[in-house]
Design a protein around this nucleic acid. Structure first.
Lengths: 334, 334
DNA sequence: TTGAAAGCGTTACCAG
DNA sequence: CTGGTAACGCTTTCAA
């Protein structure tokens, strides 16, 4: 009990070969019954646990996957992580965490970890790729929730264009005609898609988008606030604002309150993502809900398939969204 | 380029021994200059990366730490994770994620991972320990933010009693005399401490705690709502509520709004934790702020010390809290 | 069905 | 300062 038992110890005790012990303990079905039970029993008794480094070295796998996000501090990733973790766990994989903070060096570092055998696969939740040495698409990598174009990795995502359009249609159906949009960080595909959805829905409803009605944000609270302020300063301010994510929507609602506007009485607000606690806000936020846990599970499932050698489909996996109509939207006044 | 280069390859190319290459690449300072540069250059050229499994096997360390939380889906842990991740990273450690969901089996599983060499140390953020085989206190484990009594592990935490008392004192100073409390899950030490702080502050102010003024919650939104409702049903309802965490405070505010009460006009509410976006709420939540990133950093620093053989101090590391007075507290309506 | 032995890629010990 | 070589603990041929 002073030192960890190894396979050799069990073998010596039972006068069998280490090979047999290894086989018995890995359920290979190659060990006959009297021996099998004796080995299992001895292992239990000695409290044997295999050394992962040795096993990994020999098998050339780490039984770990890497989950890389842009910012661990963002609650949006939580539920996705949960889905990934659960599925990984079931398959016997540990989950390593990576936080890039949008730093290209760190992005590269995580790809290196993959190469180093730290992990067997990677789930990427960043909006872009390290440019310098373009990672080969053959790598077992799945992009979840985000969109990375041109890299050739399989994606699990929602239809952001359609979902955004749906949110705007909801405002149109309520009778709004002056609908503004606060975008996400605009070079990124995700933001572009949501903006496109907004534009499509506006066009479909025969509504003009006046100058200044599209404000550029960055997914953070402050930019929602700032965008909203700019909107209110317009000669003809909007009666409804569609924000590209919930955090900016909270900022917008806040700004509206501070200027003495009632939400949704004076101005309606819609968010995107349905993050944790967004229904606990006051008023509860109307928003587009993504099936985040499911995205995580699905991404991990895809990754498992890739790691076991299957070719990924080129078409992205699209999961459904749902518009949660809550307390921040209402028909316009008059 | 077809196969990964190993130390042997570099050695062969340069006609030096693998040992020298290993020494050169690990900055041991034991390799003389002409050789040193040649090896480094060759490694760079061949795009050499050491195999972690082999290294781990040999050095008997994994250069990974395990961070185990009760629920990854809870944003409270985010900032702590961030602090842990940053410090771990600087020291060359990867962070593995564990999610117990309060399942004893999974708690045990994570302790097993530690023993298996999956990780060299562990940061625990669960309120309790797997009972069955009491883990030896010699294990490199640090408890962060939570409190686990009797296990002998070092702790990094805040003074929950004093912080809770401070929150209540704030209400007292505003003139409140009927102050209620909604607790956390009550067998847990953390909840007990916050409740004790509430009691101490009430006693110090010479205030009675009427029956029903302490409602039992579980840190979740719904329990804040329920606790608040029960409080409102009291013959003499409170003019202020101190909630043991922010999530329950949001629930309470919500419930108050639904019953037509103004916050803070009719009832003041104070939370605990200062979670992400709690200042974005409407009204912005008055709450006790924990230095979460700092807790994470400090816990990891302690763990690094333990892993390098230092004996941990028996006294817990106590980090300061700050009361954030925001929009949910005001003097009582006469 | 079992055993012997050869690695997996590193690092660390012992000589020189 | 450098080289040879033996581990580290496991899995997996190849034989028996």
């Amino acid at each position: 009990m002073t030192t960890r038992p190894k396979i050799k110890d069990i073998a010596a005790r039972l006068r069998v070969s280490p090979a047999t012990v290894s086989r018995a303990l890995s359920d290979s079905g190659l060990v006959a019954e009297p021996t099998l039970s004796r080995i299992r029993e001895a292992a239990r008794l000695l409290n044997y646990r295999p050394n992962v480094s040795a096993r990994n070295l020999r098998t050339r796998r780490s039984m770990a996957v890497l989950m890389v996000v842009r910012d661990i501090g963002n609650p949006f990733y939580l539920e996705i992580m949960k889905g990934v973790e659960a599925t990984a766990r079931e398959a016997g994989y540990a989950v390593l965490m990576g936080n890039t903070e949008n730093d290209p060096d760190r992005e590269i570092a995580y790809f290196d970890m993959l190469r180093d055998g730290h992990a067997d696969g990677m789930i990427l939740m960043t909006g872009k790729l390290p440019a310098e040495p373009a990672p080969p698409p053959s790598l077992p990598v799945v992009v979840a929730s985000e969109i990375i174009e041109g890299a050739g990795f399989p994606h699990v995502q929602v239809d952001n264009v359609a979902a955004a359009a749906g949110a705007v249609q909801h405002l149109v159906a309520l009778g709004h005609r002056r609908i503004a949009h606060i975008t996400g960080p605009v070079p990124e595909v995700l933001s572009l898609h949501r903006r496109r959805g907004y534009r499509q829905a506006m066009r479909a409803a025969g509504l003009k988008i006046p100058p200044g009605y599209i404000q550029r944000g960055d997914f953070l609270l402050a930019s929602g606030r700032a965008g909203c302020r700019a909107l209110l300063d317009l000669p003809v301010p909007p009666t409804a604002i569609f924000c590209a994510n919930d955090e900016m929507a909270f900022g917008a609602v806040h700004e509206l309150h501070q200027h003495g506007h009632d939400v949704p009485g004076d101005v309606s607000v819609v968010g995107f993502d349905d993050i944790y606690l967004s229904e606990a806000f006051y008023p509860p936020l109307t928003t587009v809900s993504q099936p985040r846990a499911e995205i995580g599970r699905m991404a991990m499932t895809q990754l498992l398939a890739m790691m076991s050698g299957k070719k990924p489909s080129r078409a992205p996996v699209i999961l459904p969204t749902a518009l949660k109509v809550r307390g921040t939207t209402a028909p316009p006044r008059t």
